[in-house]
Simulated scan of single mutants.
Amino acid sequence: MKAKAGSRAGDSRLAVKKSKAEKDPNKPKRPPSAFFVFMDTFRKEYKEKHPDVKQVSVIGKAGGEKWKSLSDAEKAPYAAKAEKLKAEYAKKIDAYNNPQVIPSPTSPSSKHRRQNCLTQHMVVLNRVVSCSSPFQAGEASGDSDKSKSEVNDEDDGSEVRPSTPTPDRSLRC
């Protein structure tokens, strides 16, 4: 009896539900097969002939029987249209999986973008150099590397260290 109780506890661990991954709404839909291309036209014709029939199952069964009774020559136009839709889908899915950035006429050329990027980086570097230059100037002249406020703070017993400037990493090209 104890073995059965242990196996039930093991079953409860297996009952973990996994959630489905969300589908991308921008992904192209798969193309219909030849049968579904046929069913689009068949539904319209069937509803015109039988306006009182509203059940989807009845229309589906009638369409399936009609499809089975068609010869290969009669199915050929539907198969051709399905192949055409399949080729269009292949192009769309390829573009979806491998997006290419096409520069618009209003956007600057890549040369101008590189120059703008370099200019932005130079501005950032100039800010860093100008911020750090008082500390470097003090070292070059042989003065103490402590600022005046630090010298005055030594009397209090607390020491304040100047923060070193860091370059702005938010600018990306």
Rank of each mutant, 00 (worst) to 15 (best):
S71R: 01
V123G: 06
W67T: 04
K111L: 14
F135C: 06
A140P: 09
A73M: 05
P134N: 01
D72N: 14
N98W: 02
H50D: 02
G138I: 10
F135V: 07
S107E: 15
R169G: 02
G138T: 12
K47H: 04
G63D: 03
S158F: 09
A82V: 02
A73H: 06
A137T: 15
T119Q: 08
V160Q: 04
A82S: 15
C131F: 13
V128P: 00
E83A: 15
V101K: 08
S170F: 02
S130Q: 13
A87C: 00
T166I: 11
D153Y: 04
Q55M: 10
T106S: 13
K61Y: 02
D156Q: 06
W67D: 05
A90K: 12
M122K: 13
K47L: 06
N116Q: 11
N97A: 10
S109V: 10
N98D: 11
D145V: 10
E48H: 02
K66V: 02
N152H: 07
E150S: 07
Y89Q: 00
E83F: 01
M122L: 13
A90Q: 12
I59N: 09
R113H: 03
G138L: 13
K47M: 08
S170D: 09
S170W: 01
G142N: 07
V101F: 11
R113Q: 14
S147Y: 08
K66I: 01
T106Q: 08
T106C: 01
S132L: 13
R114E: 11
K66W: 06
V160P: 01
S107V: 12
K66C: 08
P103N: 08
S133T: 10
D52G: 10
K49D: 07
